[in-house]
Design a protein around this nucleic acid. Structure first.
Length: 723
DNA sequence: TACTATTTAATTTTT
DNA sequence: TTAAATAGTA
């Protein structure tokens, strides 16, 4: 057998991992060390060389995109399509099992998946039903609580209120939420995992079937598995399954949503004799960038320990720029981007990273002004758009009349005279009789409603029945097409004035094409419609379109994980922003921020700019902050400070206040600025001028405040009062 | 029911 | 600042 294609171009460590014997294996893979590569080649090795049937392989990835990419790469390597190979996210795989064994899992055959938005609505409705004050019991917090419990594998009955009344209430809300979901055949994301775990745990036959089937379990991004995912994996592996997991403890950035790095440690005790392979050679970044990243992450405790190295060049120094404010910061970024583009580089090879989404705004404004095309990652995705969810709700109701969450969503959309009063009556009937809203509506329409309301309700119900009848037997996309018109949604959004309505209609039409290109899996026993609906919930689709255009990439550092760019900017590197204020006090939080910083730095292949602003407008308030402590953690020899501020001669359009304009044009002495002058600042209080430099718009003064300490302030922004 | 004024709160996000 | 949710008004 010729194994060259599978092993060529692998380094020793990679090869060792790929060809490891059938024993539990933990691959610690640093950033840019060829992690995905190892997984792909491992799968190919098992199939092609070890003769393992694709059917005996289970591969888990973090996102759907990663799953699709992995499948593609395995097929390319093997030069044949691999059927019967289960690759997917934990959620996707759990879903698959639940569909196959819905009966054993205690679910209705056509159970529906709800996303976090649906979940939140459901919780809000629940609170209203129980007449619980949603000011004291914040829906988001309840949602958070429920998901956190599920992530840990805990049902309400496992929870103890610990004598705490608030906690007791939370638990009973969790319980009530579960009952609603069960009645409506609704399954949220965490529930998929929890059910799938219970399914295997409580069904010895199923468990042994799957254990026999899946000999090899490949897991990507292992550091980001949560408790229930890990438990499922361990259960599935049993004593005979061979887990092969790949992860990087230094890139664990999702603790806040249940991920536990500790699983990397635990893996070694749960699977005695685990073989550990470390991938430390980096093929992405320059030595400078790697050394900087290594130095930063070295400040974290309890690491597995790993040092990235490269055979590549040292590369250029990391450039650090201190901006006056966020606009100056943006201007700086735009200037460097211009240089980059002028040198003939692709815009798409550059990325601007930030800690929180709010920071993108200023950058976007400047990019628009400069006429540089850009794309912002994140935000609403296709299947999350309101109009799409409306259409899906109709489809779901057609498939599943008892789906309360869909019922509520579209019962009066487009408006058909079923107002809050009527819906409230339906709700209370449903509550009293423990039935679905659909049934309640049917029961109530003939008795308890005013004739007008009763009429409206029965019109709605017969509309749904009619759509169900008329779409029966049609192709999926014809069903969708029929529903968006028959429901009146298209006309409803057409009436919306302006571009908004137009885009909504376009999106609805796009939904029809999505249905057209959707390929149902013949192996599944669901109807194509149900399969499409699950797909929509499980895979929300791409964010923005125009992915093909050559443009600058804007995203948070979280969404940058797994990506790489020749040119990278890390913006807003200030204490309070990054590390974020809410993480600073907690050592665990701070370490996670540091890992995020590590992720950010290691995105850069060649050039890295780090910027921070002395003053930043946040929530409408001016804030002054220190450069991020992470900057100080980068060894000085890798840093080059950029100081173009003396030459800046841009017009100060950004000045809003009259004082600002005056300060921008008048010489300092006329403003009364001299050493020793007492001044007052609205935030820092009283102080004395110690020093000053520059004239006009760029004049800065050093002030020693009585309470806030010594600070450099830009005169035109600081709004100092003379005393 | 729809529009407007007021209040409130403000990481990170995939499934 | 601003976006979203809520309360109040026509």
């Amino acid at each position: 057998m010729d194994v060259t294609p599978i092993l060529e171009n692998l380094n020793d460590a990679q090869r060792q991992a790929v060809t490891a014997p059938a024993e539990p294996t933990l691959v610690i893979a640093g950033a840019g060390s060829g992690k995905t590569r190892v997984l792909v080649h491992r799968a190919a090795w098992l199939i092609d060389v070890e003769g393992v049937s694709p059917q005996s392989l289970l591969a888990v990835t973090f996102t759907n995109k990663a799953a699709a990419e992995m499948r593609g790469r395995i097929e390319t390597l093997l030069r044949l399509p691999v059927q019967n190979l289960w690759i997917g996210t934990f959620h996707g795989l759990a879903h698959r099992m639940l569909r196959r064994h819905w009966r054993e899992a205690g679910l209705p055959q056509n159970f529906q998946i709800i996303d976090s938005d649906d979940q939140l609505r459901l919780i809000k409705r629940l609170l209203k039903n129980l007449e619980i004050d949603d000011g004291r019991w914040v829906p988001r917090e309840i949602q958070w609580f429920i998901n956190a419990q599920k992530d840990e594998g805990l049902r309400p009955q496992h929870l103890d209120h610990e004598g705490n009344a608030d906690r007791r209430q939370m638990i009973s809300l969790y319980q009530a939420y579960e009952e609603i979901c069960q009645r409506g055949g609704l399954v949220d994301f965490a529930e998929l995992l929890l059910r799938a775990h219970e399914l295997l745990r409580d069904n010895a036959e199923l468990l042994s079937h799957y254990r026999r089937r899946f000999q090899h379990l490949l897991v990507d991004e292992f550091q980001d598995t949560n408790a229930i995912q890990y438990a499922w994996l361990r259960l599935l592996a049993g004593d005979s399954g061979v887990p092969f997991v790949v992860g990087d403890d230094d890139q664990s950035i999702y603790r806040w949503r249940g991920a536990r790095v500790e699983h990397i440690h635990r893996f070694q005790t749960d699977f005695p004799g685990t073989r550990i392979v470390k991938l430390e050679q980096n093929y992405r970044s320059t030595a400078t960038i790697l050394n900087a990243a290594n130095a930063v992450i070295a400040n974290n405790s309890s690491r597995l320990g790993k040092n990235l190295w490269t055979e590549g060049a040292e590369g250029e120094a990391i450039r650090v720029y201190s901006a006056y404010n966020e606009r100056d910061e943006a201007d700086f970024v735009i200037g460097r981007l211009r240089d980059w583009i002028d040198q003939g580089n692709a815009r798409a090879d550059s990325a601007v990273l930030y800690r929180s989404n709010a920071q993108s705004r200023v950058l976007e404004e400047s990019l628009i002004n400069a006429g540089i095309p850009y794309r912002v990652y994140g935000g609403l995705r296709f299947f999350e758009r309101a109009e799409i969810k409306d259409a899906l709700a109709y489809l779901r109701l057609i498939s599943h009349r008892d789906d309360d969450s869909s019922f509520e969503r579209i019962v009066n959309k487009p408006t058909r005279g079923i107002g809050a009063r009527t819906v409230e009556l339906i709700r209370s009937y449903a509550r009293a009789n423990a039935c679905s809203l659909w049934r309640a509506a049917g029961a109530i329409a003939s008795n308890d409603l005013s004739s007008r309301a009763a009429n409206a309700v029965s019109t709605f119900m017969s509309l749904v029945e009619r759509m169900a009848r008329e779409t029966r037997g049609l192709d999926l996309h014809d069903q969708v097409d029929h529903v968006i018109y028959a429901s009146g949604l298209v006309d409803f959004f057409k009436k919306d004035k302006g571009e908004k309505g137009e885009t909504r209609v376009e999106n609805l039409l796009e939904l029809v094409s999505a249905a057209k290109s959707f390929e149902p899996d013949p192996a599944e026993e669901m109807t194509p419609l149900d399969e499409f609906l699950s797909h929509a919930a499980l895979e929300a689709g791409e964010g923005q379109a125009d992915a093909w255009e050559d443009c600058v990439q804007l995203m948070t550092m979280h969404s940058a994980k797994g990506l790489e760019f020749p040119l990278v900017f890390m913006c807003g590197m200030e204490d309070g922003l990054f590390p974020h204020q809410r993480s600073i006090a907690d050592p665990n939080g701070l370490e996670e921020e540091r890992r995020l910083c590590y992720v950010g730095i290691t995105r850069a292949k060649k050039t890295l700019f780090v910027t921070h602003a002395e003053q930043r407008r946040l929530h409408g308030m001016d804030n002054f902050s220190q450069p991020s402590r992470f900057i100080a953690e980068i060894p000085a020899e890798h840093i080059e400070e950029v100081r173009p501020r003396v030459q800046i001669t841009r017009p100060m359009r950004s000045l809003h206040s009259r004082q600002g304009l005056r300060a921008a044009t008048m010489p300092n002495d006329e403003l009364g600025i001299r050493l020793g002058q007492r001044v007052r600042h609205r935030k820092f209080g009283d102080g004395v001028i110690l020093n000053c430099e520059g004239q006009g718009a760029h004049a800065r003064v050093e002030v020693n405040f009585e309470t806030a300490g010594t600070k450099w302030l830009v005169l035109s922004y600081a709004n100092l009062d003379l005393m």
